[in-house]
């Protein structure tokens, strides 16, 4: 990692090779496909999120719109390798759904979705990372942070030993 940084900065100084990401070149002709795909992903993530973190006495993952946030960070923050991993995990959801129920996840009934999540949660490590992503998106949203839990923007004091949960 450090070695890579070292190389990067030296090549910049030497006016060396500039690597342009393929994404930048191909984006113009794939925009429609990309945006359609991403809106499906957002919907899928929200529906999947609602199975994992359903609304109860407090709102769930769908109301927190975890899909939109995840879609944003996958696009702007994830490395290429992480993006590949994410896309693979999404494909697994739909592939499994087609195999079990002959239709995509979004076409499934609530019961089918529940069965599918049960199956993947027991067996698929990729699903675990998707679940963690959805959970962190939920807990960092306003819904998760300030309705499901309690957030103190300005605590005003530090108490090193209290019986009250701070969240």
């Amino acid at each position: 990692m450090e070695r890579r940084r070292f190389v990067t900065i030296n090549s910049l100084l030497l006016g060396g090779v500039v690597i342009v990401s393929n994404g930048l070149i191909t984006i113009s002709c794939e925009t429609n496909v990309e945006s359609e795909k991403s809106s499906i992903d957002i919907k899928l993530l929200n529906e999947l999120g609602e199975i994992i973190i359903p609304s109860s006495s407090t709102p769930g993952a769908k109301e927190a719109n975890v899909g939109e946030y995840i879609s944003q960070i996958v696009q702007d923050c994830f490395s290429e390798k992480e993006q590949e991993g994410f896309n693979l995990n999404i494909s697994t959801i739909n592939n499994t759904s087609h195999r079990l129920f002959g239709q995509s996840f979004l076409e499934c009934t609530y019961k089918q979705r529940h069965q599918l999540v049960q199956k993947l949660d027991d067996s698929d490590p990729g699903f675990k990372s998707l679940k963690e992503l959805i959970t962190s998106a939920f807990l960092s949203s306003e819904v998760g942070m300030n309705q499901f839990l309690t957030y103190h923007q300005v605590p005003g004091k530090y108490v090193g030993c209290t019986e009250t949960r701070p969240w």
Binding site: P155, G156, Y158, C161, E163, T164
Partner: peptide, 11 residues
């Protein structure tokens, strides 16, 4: 130990 204890505030 202190399983029933928490902290409050971001020190």
């Amino acid at each position: 130990g202190f399983e029933d204890k928490f902290t409050f505030g971001r020190r």
